[in-house]
Amino acid sequence: MAYSDKVIDHYNNPRNMGSFEKTEDNVGTGIVGAPECGDVMKLQLKINDAGVIEEAKFKTFGCGSAIASSSLATEWVKGKTIEEALQIKNTDIVQELNLPPVKIHCSVLAEDAIKGAINDYKTKKGQKENVQA
């Protein structure tokens, strides 16, 4: 199976690879796994008080498609509001990267990671507000 040029590009030059400190208040962390292939994907979002995603970082252990999906996801979410980021669907990633059917689960992983990161951020924020109240 051949990878598309876009997948290869993201694989060779991954955007926004790395980590934020996960305990920071304005950082949401989403971590998801796909046991069928042993992939683990971590996606972190730095979100400001206006609910805009200022920065995104990822770390992924997996195949080229999983790395490309998470790399693309970090590019896409940057500058978006939480609500806008939640609109990103795995099918968008499939289309953009031209993923073959056997690699669709990689894009699902990326969508789940975005959602997980936003949930984590919201939970953190909620807890903080509860403490302050």
Binding site: T29, I31, V32, G33, P35, V40, K42, K59, F61, G116
Partner: peptide
């Protein structure tokens, strides 16, 4: 059965 996030994190850090 999805593994809980802390376990996935542990796997990632171990790797």
């Amino acid at each position: 059965t999805a593994l809980p996030p802390d376990l996935l994190m542990e796997i990632m850090e171990l790797k």
